[in-house]
């Protein structure tokens, strides 16, 4: 067999600590998975979660480095610590997966989600909706005489809270992007 040219420091194993101490509480973790942007890579990741019975609370994916053909998948998952470790190890062995980072354990992070909410109503409800939107710093991106579409960005909890408030005021439909997350500070965790 002819050997292939292997890039130095190519595969990283940084995400998981094989000696982590295991509790029995279900934890919520945000993972950043850097993958080669090739056909089927998302199917591989999703297939892993469905095939092995892991949870996906949210998942976002988009290309982040056009020249390097890299996409970033941000997955929010939950499970007991042993399962979280398994998920990270299993993700790491998918061939087009370059890096797996557990943002939840790697230090402070910022997490943001974008949502669009359609609220229909008139009179006091309509005035209350726009007043609350202002408090939550939501933007109106579409308006008719009977409805608004709000755009709101924030943590998933903030969006939950806003949606809860809109419900009695005529909330019709919600579209959410899922979480995008980055570690705080000047250092890049992924490359």
């Amino acid at each position: 067999m002819s050997p292939l040219k292997i890039k130095k420091g190519a595969t990283s194993h940084s995400a998981y600590n094989l000696r982590s101490s295991y509790g029995d509480e279900v934890e919520r973790h945000t993972l950043a998975v850097i993958v080669a942007n090739e056909p089927g890579v998302l199917a591989r990741v999703i297939g892993l979660f469905s095939g092995r019975g892991y949870n996906i609370e949210s998942l976002t994916v988009a290309e982040v480095d056009h020249e390097g053909h890299r996409s970033r998948i941000t997955i929010v998952t939950s499970g007991k610590p042993q399962i979280i470790t398994q998920i990270k190890s299993q993700l790491s062995r998918i061939v087009p997966v370059h890096q797996v980072h557990d943002l939840t354990v790697e230090g402070p992070t910022v997490e943001r989600e974008l949502a669009l909410l359609k609220v229909a109503g008139s009179g006091d409800h309509r005035i209350e909706a726009i007043r609350l939107a202002d408090i939550f710093r939501a933007n109106v991106v579409d308006s008719t005489l009977e409805s608004f579409v709000f755009e709101i960005t924030g943590t998933p909890e903030k969006i939950d809270a806003f949606a809860d408030l809109m419900r009695p005021l005529g909330l019709q439909e919600v579209a959410r992007t899922g979480v995008a997350a980055l570690a705080r500070g000047s250092e890049a965790k992924t490359s």
């Binding site: 002819s2 040219k5 292997i6 890039k7 190519a10 595969t11 061939v95």
Partner: peptide
């Protein structure tokens, strides 16, 4: 493409 021209990142520890 010859094998030696192929770049790969896959290199398990």
């Amino acid at each position: 493409t010859e094998a030696r021209q192929v770049e790969t990142h896959y290199a398990p520890q």
